[in-house]
């Protein structure tokens, strides 16, 4: 297992959002996390990144526990985060955004070739101010910035949000290619069921702060009622 959560509890202030999440993410695979709004998907991502404190339980990554570490330490262990809303640095150039992704890493100050190989547009526009790009391009930048640190694992939170469908398709393809070529482990939170079934090999469903079921994508594709049951579509 690349990432494993064991009975993890976490939340904001004194209120618990995650009430004992147990989840395993296999190395080199795309695992999707599905659930309705407010079930704790983003909270889970932030907890893994160390942005929210783990109140109970253990998070293990690549053979060592990471709970209690600071976000920068977790990032430098090899987990890259593409947050909801992208959070790129709007007033910085594309190149500066990508460089920021490298600063804590062994390749500090040097953007690895794979970033531009997968997202040629970022090379084309490297001197452009990031805030002036379209939503889809900004999303590519956010993913590229995550890749710039040469991570072992990628956390993607709603990468299709606010992006037009044709671009979503393109981003999904690129992500799939990256996962295969770079042997990246990906944990994906996504509302877009098409995209999820397209990319993920395993889907975990979260409800009220707990993982309630895990299925292979094959099974989900074969029986659509499963998805409807958990997502209430």
């Amino acid at each position: 297992m690349m990432l494993s959560l064991d009975e993890v509890e976490s939340g904001y202030g004194s209120s618990l959002v995650l009430k004992g999440v147990t989840l395993n993410v296999a190395a080199g695979q795309v695992t999707a996390l599905l659930g309705r709004n407010g079930m704790g998907k983003s909270t889970l991502m932030k907890t893994i990144m160390g942005l929210l404190p783990v109140k109970r339980g253990v998070i293990g990554f690549d053979g060592a526990p990471i709970n209690g570490l600071r976000p920068d330490q977790i990032s430098n262990r090899g987990i890259a985060f593409v947050p909801q809303g992208r959070e790129i640095f709007m007033e910085f150039t594309v190149e500066e955004n990508l460089l920021l992704g490298t600063l804590g890493k062994p390749n500090a100050g040097w953007i690895p070739d794979l970033v531009f190989a997968h997202f040629p547009i970022l090379h084309e526009r490297r001197k452009q101010i990031a805030g002036t790009m379209s939503g889809g391009q900004q999303q590519q930048l956010a993913i590229g910035r995550a890749l710039a640190g040469q991570p072992k694992m990628l956390l993607l939170d709603e990468p299709s949000e606010g992006i037009q469908p044709s671009i979503v398709e393109q981003i999904a393809q690129t992500l799939r290619a990256i996962a295969e070529k770079e042997k990246l482990t990906i944990l994906l939170v996504e509302q877009n069921v098409e995209m999820v079934l397209d990319m993920a090999s395993t889907c975990a469903f979260i409800e009220n702060g707990r993982i309630v079921a895990t299925h292979g994508s094959e099974a989900l594709r074969a029986d659509e009622r499963l998805i409807h049951r958990y997502l209430g579509l």
Partner: peptide, 25 residues
């Protein structure tokens, strides 16, 4: 400089900069 870039990153968005591996401390 790299220090300056990191500093500007922290000014713009502290928690994201930390998530990218910048030691804000």
């Amino acid at each position: 400089t790299r220090f300056g870039l990191a500093a500007r990153g922290v000014i713009a968005n502290r928690s994201m900069a930390a998530c990218l591996g910048i030691n804000t401390r």
